[in-house]
């Protein structure tokens, strides 16, 4: 398929080559091959159980934590295979941050939540530096103004939308190159969703973002590229505009127009 002009100019950040995933004997993903551009938002859409979340979890090797899960194929980040034997998944995950479907702040204060990553990776050499990282991350996540007077309160005392932005702040505190978002707004109300979407628009200037979403409108609003998954296969990939206006495949069209899903 042909890509539109502005996509051609982008550098490829992540390249998935023949990625298949098995849960025990069941094949959850079937030879997925496509490229994700740097500093763009790529959304993964598709009906439930189509493998989009599984694919997302391949990109930071979170599937390693599930015993029965096996990944085949290659995922290249900056042309290096992250499944190569010499790659340490722990270090990889510091480069590839992740935000989950349900906000999962740690049972710690707001400050400690954001300071968690920098402190385990030794990113700050002094207390001031750590504080600096935390405050910058909170600012970037657009949360600073709301929480600046209550940094020592527990993260779970925030509202759902604030918790999700706290998780985003936590993820960007370790300065990752890529942020993976697994349906980050599905547990949020429309107003909190709008705030997170604005934040994504802002973050994409500095980070490569891959987002799984159930909301076609959200994919259309926030992403530049869209991949449509169905039954473990990548059906169609291209610019969001193209996927939503002139889909090549009937399945894509059916899903976008709400006939399946």
């Amino acid at each position: 398929m042909k890509k539109s002009g502005n996509l051609m100019s982008s550098k490829i950040k992540i390249s998935s080559k023949d990625v298949s995933v098995f849960y025990s004997q069941n094949k959850a993903l079937n030879n997925i091959t496509f490229d994700i551009d740097e500093k763009k938002v790529t959304s993964l859409i598709g009906p439930s159980g189509c493998g989009k979340s599984t694919f997302l979890r391949c990109l930071n090797r979170m599937n390693d934590t599930i015993d029965i899960c096996k990944v085949k194929g290659k995922v290249l980040i900056d042309n290096e295979d992250i499944y190569a034997p010499n790659v340490d998944p722990v270090l990889l995950r510091a480069r590839v941050g992740m935000v989950f479907q349900k906000p999962n702040p740690f049972p710690k204060s707001i400050f400690d939540n954001v300071a968690y990553g920098p402190s385990i990776h030794g990113l700050a050499s002094s207390k001031d530096e750590l504080e600096n990282i935390v405050l910058t991350s909170l600012q970037r996540a657009g949360l600073y103004k709301e929480v600046k007077n209550r940094l020592s309160e527990t993260g779970t005392s925030l509202s759902g939308g604030q918790q999700q932005r706290l998780c985003i702040a936590r993820a960007i505190a370790v300065s990752p190159e890529i942020i993976l978002m697994d349906e980050p707004c599905s547990a949020l109300d429309p107003i909190a969703t709008a705030i997170v979407e604005e934040l994504i628009d802002e973050l994409v200037k500095n980070y490569t973002i891959v987002i799984v979403t159930h909301s076609m409108q959200q994919a259309a609003r926030v992403s530049q590229n869209t991949a449509f998954f169905h039954m473990g296969n990548l059906i169609e990939f291209g610019s969001t505009q193209k996927i939503f206006s002139t889909p090549q495949f009937k399945q894509t069209q059916d899903y976008i127009t709400g006939k399946i899903g």
């Binding site: 510091a94 702040p105 968690y116 385990i120 993820a171 370790v174």
Partner: peptide, 22 residues
């Protein structure tokens, strides 16, 4: 909840850091 562990792993924490700190 597993979600807390996942959150910690996704930050690049090791298993023992996750246990100790989360």
């Amino acid at each position: 909840p597993q979600s807390l562990r996942d959150g910690s792993y996704a930050m690049g924490a090791t298993h023992s850091e996750t246990i100790k700190r989360v």
